[in-house]
């Protein structure tokens, strides 16, 4: 057997990893439902309640006053991706605990490629979830322009990669599944609430300039804004740069952490 990895072999490996992620997702129907129900609850209940108390002035990319449901939808799309990224992180820790991770890591393909393939496969799953959510939201009068549904695709891909890479990075540092509750409390919730997902940043500035600055520095805010602008066929350069930069940082961190020579595993017994 030749040991040279041909382009076809790389593609085969990627498709194999993507297929496994999809099969796992299909097998876990509850996960799909939860991924849909969570943002829908926010849209149907939370947004309906807040609609009455939270006035929104004209905020880019919107060119007129919009309903709170419309405003909150891009944030809920990003929330789906945030939870999906964390779910991937959880599944990496689970795979590591059960030993399934070893199967992946003893592949002859370089580790960065294996991690990237797993990341991209997870993002594809999250994009399917987002489009399912947008389809339901359409019936709830959240109707961005038709071109927006296409324009948002690359934005979702990039934001999904960034949030997935963050999950990958976190998974390398989480030793046991039990520690995942800490991730929920210290990563997911602060990231989501301290962002522009639920309220515009100018609103935040009215109540606390410090909180505004924190929200403005939050990478999740930029993922939300990237999606929000793309959904209205507009491009937000700052969000694109921040999301891209964070993607590079998180992914590089994950590759280093999963490297047998450099990462934490190099100092751990039984870490794999």
């Amino acid at each position: 057997m030749s040991h040279r990895l041909t382009p076809r072999m790389w593609l085969t490996a990627f498709l194999g990893i993507a297929r496994r992620e999809t099969l796992r997702f299909v097998n876990q129907r509850g996960r799909f439902l939860a991924a849909l129900v969570r943002p829908l609850v926010w849209l149907f209940i939370f947004a309906a309640g807040f609609r009455a108390v939270l006035g929104l002035s004209i905020t880019p990319p919107y060119q007129t006053y919009v309903l709170y449901e419309v405003y909150v939808t891009p944030g809920l799309c990003a929330m789906i991706q945030l939870f999906n990224g964390m779910q991937s992180s959880l599944s990496m820790v689970h795979d590591r605990e059960t030993g399934a991770m070893r199967t992946l890591l003893v592949s002859p393909f370089p580790r960065w490629f294996l991690l990237a393939a797993k990341l991209v496969a997870g993002v594809i799953v999250s994009i399917i979830q987002v489009y399912a959510f947008l389809a339901i939201a359409w019936f709830w009068d959240v109707q961005p322009p038709a071109i927006g549904y296409l324009a948002v695709l690359p934005a979702l891909f990039l934001s999904g990669l960034m949030l997935g890479a963050m999950g990958l990075f976190l998974s390398s540092a989480i030793r046991q599944l039990e520690n995942f509750a800490g991730v929920m409390n210290f990563v997911i919730f602060p990231m989501f609430f301290a962002s522009s997902a639920l309220y515009p940043l100018w609103r935040m500035n009215e109540s606390s300039p410090l909180l505004h600055d924190i929200c403005a520095a939050n990478p999740f805010t930029h993922a939300v804004e990237l999606i929000r602008f793309a959904l209205y066929a507009r491009f937000d350069l700052l969000s694109f740069l921040v999301v891209s930069g964070c993607l590079i940082l998180f992914f590089a961190g994950a590759v280093i952490m999963y490297d047998p020579a450099k990462g934490l595993w190099a100092r751990r017994k039984g870490g794999a």
Binding site: T6, A13, L15, G16, R20, L104, P108, F109
Partner: peptide, 18 residues
């Protein structure tokens, strides 16, 4: 992977070797 079939596991592992 306990949630997958034997065939799916084998195909996955084969893919990891291209």
């Amino acid at each position: 992977d306990a949630d997958l079939t034997v065939a799916q596991n084998l195909e996955y592992h084969a893919a990891l070797h291209g």
